[in-house]
């Protein structure tokens, strides 16, 4: 057994939130940080690291895993050993919480996915491809429009006696339909409950279409905090839907578990740059390459004045040479 001073860090940089999960040497969650990304992934990530450093001074990080749509950015900023897509990360975290899990419903800020798990491994998955109706951002917007704190939003749905039917196919039309229902005199709880049901219908007929949903079902991602959506899922699926205790940081937990697995197997030294990252200066500079009609938007990432990463190009012209910084 290892010293208690060995930890793993999982980082999930998503469109809406940036989450950090600190795991002990056995892979148990010891602390988590959930921050709104607010379009500033680098500074929010630094803020998250600072919070952890202040709470856990002097701890040793054995490995860092990143996931989420900002996984590559987070990896070069913090120095990561494993960079994993959010589907694998969520599947791994779900299996850890419940080793029998067969279905994972995940609704985040701008994407929603379903993962089918059999015997502990993911066998099928799907992600929303053309539409973001029914994701966290849309709920956020509606909560703001109705002047209800997002945390309270789901509770309103529970007060409804008879949900009204809202057109949930498209977020713009859903909003018009909600306004219409308000104008015809329906109660707010009934409209919110109707919206929850519409979102679940939309999810099941688009994202989860043709997938074999078997219990146990886990519901994770930021939207799992919304009790109204959970109830609507249970009503449609006719089975209990479990929400893991740390549903909001499951991606980060998965990234942490994956890096732990990787480091234990490889017995390597971490690429983590240390909590000092929080006080380093990072800058991104983008420009448009005029070399061909593709006009690639190339982004350079600098740490202090040193170029540490570059992406956005199609051809080999901008390949970084002699890059050993990783």
């Amino acid at each position: 057994m290892k010293a208690d001073n060995d930890y793993y860090l999982g980082i999930d940089v998503g469109s809406v939130s940036t989450d950090l999960a600190l795991l002990d040497s056995f892979g148990n969650l010891v602390d988590k940080v959930y921050l709104r990304t607010r379009g500033k992934p680098i500074s929010i990530l630094k803020e998250g690291l600072k919070i952890l450093e202040d709470k856990w001074p002097g701890i040793k990080i054995n490995g860092v895993g990143t996931t989420g749509s900002g996984r590559y950015l987070a990896a070069v900023v913090a120095g990561a050993d494993v960079v994993k897509n959010e589907i694998t990360a969520h599947a791994v975290a779900a299996s850890r919480v419940n080793s029998d899990v067969k279905t994972v419903l995940e609704i985040g800020g701008q994407d929603s996915k379903i993962i089918i798990i059999r015997d502990g491994i993911a066998v099928d998955f799907a992600m929303n491809s053309v539409c973001a109706a029914g994701t966290g951002s849309f709920l956020d917007q509606q909560a703001a429009r109705l002047e209800i704190p997002i945390e309270e939003f789901g509770k309103y749905a529970l007060m409804a006696e008879r949900p009204v039917r809202i057109a949930g196919r498209c977020s713009v039309f859903a909003e018009s339909d909600m306004i219409h229902k308000q104008q015809t005199g329906h109660d707010l709880p009934e409209i919110i409950a109707g919206l929850c049901e519409a979102m679940v219908r939309n999810y099941l007929s688009n994202v989860a279409k043709g997938k074999e949903i078997k219990p146990p079902v886990l519901f994770q991602g930021g939207v799992a905090a919304n009790i109204g959506i959970k109830m609507a899922f249970e009503k449609e699926l006719k089975c209990p839907v479990y929400i893991p205790e740390h549903h909001d940081v499951m991606g980060a937990i998965g990234a942490g578990l994956l890096v732990r697995e990787f480091i234990l197997k490889k017995k390597g030294k971490t690429k983590f740059k240390g909590f000092a990252v929080a006080s380093l200066d990072f800058a991104t500079r983008a420009f448009e390459c005029e070399g061909c009609p593709n006009h690639c938007e190339i982004v350079n990432i600098f740490q202090a004045d040193e170029l540490i990463a570059r992406w956005g190009y199609k051809c080999t012209k901008w390949d970084m040479l002699n890059d050993n910084t990783g």
Binding site: S69, K84, N85, I87, A122, V123, M127, E261
Partner: peptide, 30 residues
């Protein structure tokens, strides 16, 4: 590209874990 890349990475992970499990060489303990 980002949407495609995420799906490809997830699909390949899925195939890899499936294959390792099928070949019985999966001995990672939980």
């Amino acid at each position: 590209d980002t949407g495609i890349q995420t799906r490809l990475e997830a699909f390949v992970d899925l195939l890899e874990r499936r294959k390792i499990l099928q070949e019985g060489s999966f001995c990672e303990s939980r």
